[in-house]
């Protein structure tokens, strides 16, 4: 495997930084865009990128905060971007489009690209899958894909309900039953909408898991749920990203 930092044109042609990991084998392979969570382009996310290379994919994680904070520590970059209002949805879609195009341009690419994100990145993975021609999308406990915020809830982000009819990619959703955002009712609402619209999707909710159960560096890490989740992700991408 080879892992390195690269640059590619993102939204509006802006050159942004990304972390790229590639398997050494010469066989044709699909690609995976990893959307980092709100705390940023951090070590734990880069470990996921390398895991996808170990699974046989070219994997890339764009630094969504590169424009505001080039070279900054991930936590400082996340704080700076948060203070300026966060990443606009349109820009996220453009950056994922650029990352997918970059993966498709690599030698050995089979042209198929999936996207995955956790937490805020889960919502952004669904967002990208509603606007881009991708081959598979994974939403790990993304809040505000559906759902109406509780009264007085200080939400500064919109749900994606009006965009879901445009979902054009098979979707795998992995959730924790004790998570509140998204809570079981929000997951049920999403399931209901996707069923109504005849979308190709597969959801799994882990009974003993809460939010962020994949996060190996956080108290929420749930070994059983994370291990099973990784198996399902590998199977899902194996189904949709093989040549």
């Amino acid at each position: 495997m080879t892992a390195s930092t690269v640059k590619f044109p993102g939204h509006d042609g802006d050159e942004i930084e990304a972390y790229l990991a590639r398997p050494d084998e010469a066989r044709p392979r699909g690609g995976v865009v990893v959307i980092h969570h709100m705390p940023g382009y951090d070590r734990a996310t880069k470990e996921m990128v390398r895991r996808f290379a170990e699974l046989g994919y070219d994997a890339i994680c764009p630094n969504l905060y590169f424009r505001e904070a080039p070279g900054a520590a991930p936590d400082d970059a996340a704080a700076a971007v948060r203070a300026t209002g966060g990443v606009p949805d349109e820009r996220l879609v453009g950056d994922v489009a650029g990352a997918a195009a970059y993966l498709r341009s690599l030698p050995g690419a089979n042209g198929k690209v999936g996207v995955i994100g956790h937490c805020s990145g889960g919502r952004q993975s669904v967002l990208a899958a509603c606007h881009l021609d991708l081959d598979a999308a994974v939403d790990c406990y993304g809040a505000f894909v559906t759902g109406t915020p509780p009264e007085g809830f200080p939400m500064k982000v919109t749900n994606l309900v009006d965009q879901l009819p445009a979902l054009r990619t098979p979707l795998l959703g992995l959730f924790g039953a004790t998570d509140q955002f998204p809570g079981p009712e929000q997951v049920a609402e999403l399931e209901s909408i996707l069923t109504r619209d005849g979308k190709d999707f597969e959801f799994h909710t882990y009974p003993d898991a809460g939010h962020a159960f994949f996060a190996v560096d956080r108290p929420a890490y749930n070994v059983a749920a994370a291990n099973d989740g990784w198996e399902r992700i590998a199977t899902f991408f194996g189904t949709h990203l093989e040549a």
């Binding site: 505001e68 904070a69 900054a72 520590a73 400082d76 970059a77 704080a79 700076a80 203070a83 809460g210 939010h211 962020a212 956080r218 108290p219 929420a220």
Partner: peptide, 19 residues
């Protein structure tokens, strides 16, 4: 902790790490 109150005191004019 799963959630915390996060407080940043910063000088944005000196870049993201001035925090």
């Amino acid at each position: 902790a799963e959630h915390t109150v996060n407080i940043d005191l910063s000088d944005p004019s000196k870049g993201p790490s001035a925090r």
